[in-house]
Amino acid sequence: MIKMQVIGNLGKDCVVNTVNGKNVINFTVAHTEKYKDSQGVNQERTIWVDCAYWTDRTALAPYLTKGKQVFAEGQPEVRSFTRQDGTAGASLSMRVRDIQLLGGRSENTVGGGSSYGNGASAGNTAAASVSSEADQIDDLPF
């Protein structure tokens, strides 16, 4: 088995489709790498990964919006195609197994996030209960 992981921002809002009675959430993740070329000039390269998340957890879809930063893990697939001008092309796609929301440019919060996939689900409720418990400890006189 080959495993692929990508951290990046969503290029556009996700789309939920139903194929043969099963739900799939389709989205595209852009990962940008910065590097120096052989002349020492700073360069940027963006790799776009088309993602398909086959799941019944479509309640996640409203959170997968343009600019949102995500961590996605799954199995890579390379698709070859022929362009309209007759030249060959290829695209990188991933069949998502797990996804974690990391944040976005419009959010003011740092860290935190929610994880979805293979029965693992974590929300911010646990963090909220821990912080309220920590506030109570601060009231102790010693």
Score class of each variant (00 low, 15 high):
Ile47Cys: 09
Ala126Ile: 09
Gly119Lys: 07
Gly8Phe: 02
Gln69Trp: 04
Leu64Gln: 04
Ala90Lys: 11
Gly40Arg: 08
Lys68Thr: 10
Lys68Ile: 09
Asp138Ile: 14
Pro141His: 06
Asn108Trp: 09
Asn118Ser: 14
Val130Ser: 08
Tyr63Ile: 03
Ala30Val: 09
Val19Ser: 15
Val78Gln: 14
Asn124Gln: 12
Ala127Cys: 03
Glu73Val: 03
Val110Pro: 02
Val78Leu: 14
Ile7Ser: 08
Ala59Met: 10
Arg57Val: 03
Val96Ile: 11
Asp138Tyr: 13
Asp98Met: 11
Asn9His: 14
Ser93Phe: 01
Thr109Phe: 15
Met94Phe: 11
Lys22Leu: 10
Arg79Ala: 10
Gln136His: 09
Val70Gly: 08
Thr125Met: 06
Ala30Ser: 10
Gln100Lys: 15
Gln84Ile: 00
Asp98Asn: 15
Asp50Cys: 01
Ser121Gln: 12
Arg45Ile: 08
Asp138Cys: 10
Ile25Met: 03
Thr125Pro: 02
Ala88Tyr: 02
Ile2Lys: 11
Gly104Lys: 13
Lys68Phe: 02
Gly117Leu: 11
Thr109Asp: 15
Thr18Leu: 07
Gln69Met: 13
Val96Ala: 04
Glu73Tyr: 07
Met4Ala: 15
Lys12Pro: 00
Ile47Asp: 15
Val16Cys: 00
Gly21Arg: 07
Gln5Val: 12
Ser114Cys: 12
Glu77Trp: 01
Leu92Thr: 01
Met4Lys: 03
Thr82His: 04
Leu92Trp: 00
Leu64Arg: 05
Ala126Pro: 02
Asn17Pro: 00
Thr65His: 03
Ile99Gly: 00
Val24Met: 01
Gln5Met: 10
Asn42Met: 13
Asp135Ser: 13
Met4Val: 05
Phe142Met: 06
Tyr53Asp: 08
Leu102His: 07
Cys14Gly: 01
Thr109Cys: 05
Lys22Cys: 06
Tyr63Ser: 12
Gly11Cys: 05
Val110Asp: 10
Lys36Asn: 15
Arg83Gln: 06
Val130Leu: 14
Gln69Cys: 11
Asn9Pro: 06
Gly8Ser: 00
Thr58Gln: 07
Arg79Pro: 00
Ala134Arg: 11
Ala52Val: 04
Ala127Lys: 11
Val110Arg: 10
Gln75Arg: 15
Asn20Arg: 14
Asp85Cys: 00
Ser114Lys: 10
Val130Asn: 06
Val96Trp: 03
Ser114Leu: 07
Cys14Met: 01
Glu44Gln: 14
Pro76Ser: 14
Ser91Cys: 06
Asn20Val: 07
Leu102Arg: 09
Ser106Gln: 15
Gly40Asn: 08
Val19Asn: 15
Val41Lys: 12
Gln136Asn: 14
Phe81Thr: 01
Gly103Arg: 04
Ser93Glu: 12
Val78Gly: 10
Glu33Tyr: 04
Asn42Ser: 13
Asp13Trp: 02
Ile137Val: 15
Leu64Thr: 09
Thr18Cys: 05
Trp48Glu: 11
Asp138Asn: 14
Gly67Phe: 01
Ser129His: 08
Lys34His: 09
Arg105Gln: 13
Pro62Ile: 10
Gln43Asn: 12
Arg105Phe: 11
Phe71Met: 14
Gln84Arg: 01
Gly111Thr: 07
Thr125Gly: 05
Arg95Cys: 04
Val29Thr: 07
Lys36Tyr: 11
Phe27Ile: 06
Asp98His: 13
Gln136Gly: 09
Asp139Tyr: 08
Asn124Gly: 11
